[in-house]
């Protein structure tokens, strides 16, 4: 299925199975190649007047690390996440995902990348209200072109990882916010993406649900998942192995 070739710089080696035997990184990218490498990345919106949302962002994210992006409102956190998720294009600089130079890819190729290597978790959960939980999770495989056989079982396993198997047949509207977000995380986990991108994943949750979702992130982080979490809450950021801060589109390592 994966017809995208890694960047020539990338040293192609066999995929690395994670310690529990599950594949947590893309099978065609060797562990030495960082999951994400940004160099001088910039994003400017419009022209009259231009809004510089990101400028000169350098970032290398190793596999299996969790990264929190902090910053005040309007600083460019979501913009960076959208570029990382191949939903938006940078206006300058380079972005390599699994060693692949994403900047040179067509819309269609970027869609393939999203399907195969990126999992999204949104602040608003974004579950389809008319489809049961299990189908919402299975949706992650629809655009990947994976065989339909066994999809149900794979989705059930993903639900198991977030502790939601008992709600597989429910409609999302009958779940609490925290449960909905767990389902969304299961959807992002299905297929073991290179990175999971979360934009304010606890932004719509009360403190109890926030704690349970954060506990889930801790578990997944311990399994070696590469996660990027955008937040403006220090409490959430504290759960990540590494923290960076964006102010006015400029990224700096969090000193605090």
């Amino acid at each position: 299925m994966r017809h995208l070739t890694p960047h020539p710089d990338a040293d192609v080696a066999p995929g690395a199975p994670s310690h529990d035997g599950r594949r947590l990184v893309a099978d065609d990218a060797p562990p030495e190649v960082p999951a994400v490498a940004l160099q001088g990345l910039g994003r400017v919106f419009g022209a009259d007047p231009p809004v510089v949302a990101l400028r000169g962002v350098d970032l290398v994210l190793e596999r299996g690390t969790s990264l929190a992006i902090l910053g005040p409102s309007g600083s460019g956190k979501s913009t960076l996440l959208n570029v990382l998720g191949c939903l938006d294009r940078q206006t300058c600089g380079t972005y390599r995902l699994d060693g692949i130079d994403v900047g040179g890819l067509s819309d269609g190729e970027r869609a393939v990348l999203r399907a195969q290597r990126i999992g999204f978790v949104f602040q608003t959960f974004n579950l389809l209200a008319h489809r049961p939980v299990i189908e919402n999770v299975m949706l992650a495989e629809v655009y990947r072109g994976t065989a339909r056989d066994g999809r149900h079982e794979r989705a059930l396993r993903a639900l198991e990882r977030v502790g939601m198997t008992h709600r597989a047949g429910f409609l999302p509207t009958r779940l609490s916010g925290g449960e909905q977000q767990r389902v969304a995380i299961a959807r992002a986990l299905l297929g073991d993406p290179t990175i999971m991108l979360c934009d304010e994943p606890t932004g719509n949750l009360d403190s109890v649900n926030t704690r349970s979702v954060l506990a889930l992130f801790d578990e997944l982080g311990a399994l070696g998942l590469t996660v990027v979490i955008v937040t403006h809450e220090d409490e959430v950021a504290a759960h990540a192995a590494r923290r960076v801060r964006i102010i006015d589109g400029e990224l700096s390592e969090d000193g605090a």
Binding site: G108, A115, Y143
Partner: peptide, 16 residues
């Protein structure tokens, strides 16, 4: 529109 955005995020191309 939101569903369309979600599908795009999950890897749908425009033609899908």
């Amino acid at each position: 529109v939101g569903e369309i955005g979600l599908r795009r995020a999950l890897g749908a191309a425009r033609r899908h």
